[in-house]
Design a protein around this nucleic acid. Structure first.
Lengths: 164, 164
DNA sequence: CCATTTTATCTTGAGATCAAGATATTTCGA
DNA sequence: TCGAAATATCTTGATCTCAAGATAAAATGG
């Protein structure tokens, strides 16, 4: 009898006509996402970051040396709008974690690059982040994690037609 | 090769030392939650609502007649802070969907109740919402949905010790 | 070669959220 | 009883996000 079960029990009493299985499933996804987000935030804040700024720094880091992408490329990877990305970059730049470099080939374009300090920070933070994710997933056995990932991948494929 | 797989492939190339299985799992949960949220939003906006206001109205509706709870009870169900709930209630009250009634027993306290208009709206919206959830879950077979729900429940139990 | 369209980024304005603190009321303990 | 602690709600200030539009540069095509 977890929180979602209590919600379903109320609906069952009030609206017995409703088909509630998907509601339980979606409710648990949302709630689990919330708990996992909070769990990951603890590592981010310990490094002076949040999920948004971590997301940008990590995207630059995993793109490989020289750890530089345009704002448009960052928007594609992180799925946020241009206004959001401008705001994120302004804050990261103010903290000295990234720098903007105007492109020489295209005067409209800018390259966002990790600074030395930004690289050192994300390197540490990612290592801890991955260990933290391992801990957060530890409730499930390895076999259960594999099976869960399989089902999630299948569901996700309905929203993101796999390429390649 | 979905979006999450691409991220994992980049990390594998850049940081082969990292243990990436949990990252895939957590990434898919987050991404699926985002797609499902967008899918559900379409029904909410069609009724002039958003996820936040739907959440409040639905909580009042499933609590049963007379469809009235205190702000504190609503905060417990919806897991938002007091400031957020005050803001949500202000907007719903301005739209005439709920009304605040001062308690007679406790002068600190307020009861938030669905108006006739609020009840009619949430009744329609919930019916459509459940049908929409059924559609959103339709990528998976019933057996897969049951198995997925089982794994999610187990994982969630690690964060929300089941009561009752 | 120039007008139009497209591309890349930034700006603006509004809404949602939270943490921290303010206010008013009730409860509790000496 | 009365002062302190707890409770219930609201306020404030900051951040994050998005949609829509502004700005500037590059590409296109007649």
């Amino acid at each position: 009898m977890d929180h979602v079960d209590k919600i379903l029990a109320q609906w069952r009493a009030e609206r017995p006509d409703l088909q509630l299985r998907p509601m339980g499933l979606l409710g648990r996804i949302k709630r689990l996402g919330s708990h996992l987000g909070q769990g990951m935030d603890r590592v981010f804040t310990a490094h002076g970051l949040n999920a948004a700024s971590f997301d940008v720094l990590a995207t630059l880091r995993r793109s490989g040396a020289p750890y530089a992408l345009t704002p448009s490329q960052l928007m594609d990877w992180t799925m946020v709008t241009s206004g959001t990305m401008t705001n994120r970059l302004d804050r990261l730049e103010a903290k000295g974690l990234v720098k903007r470099v105007r492109s020489e080939q295209d005067a409209r374009s800018v390259t966002v690059q990790l600074t030395e300090q930004g690289l050192a920070l994300i390197e540490d933070c990612v290592t801890e982040h991955v260990a933290n994710q391992h801990r957060l997933a530890g409730t499930l056995s390895e076999a259960e994690q594999v099976e869960l990932d399989r089902l999630l991948s299948k569901w996700l494929a309905g929203f993101e037609p796999p390429e390649d």
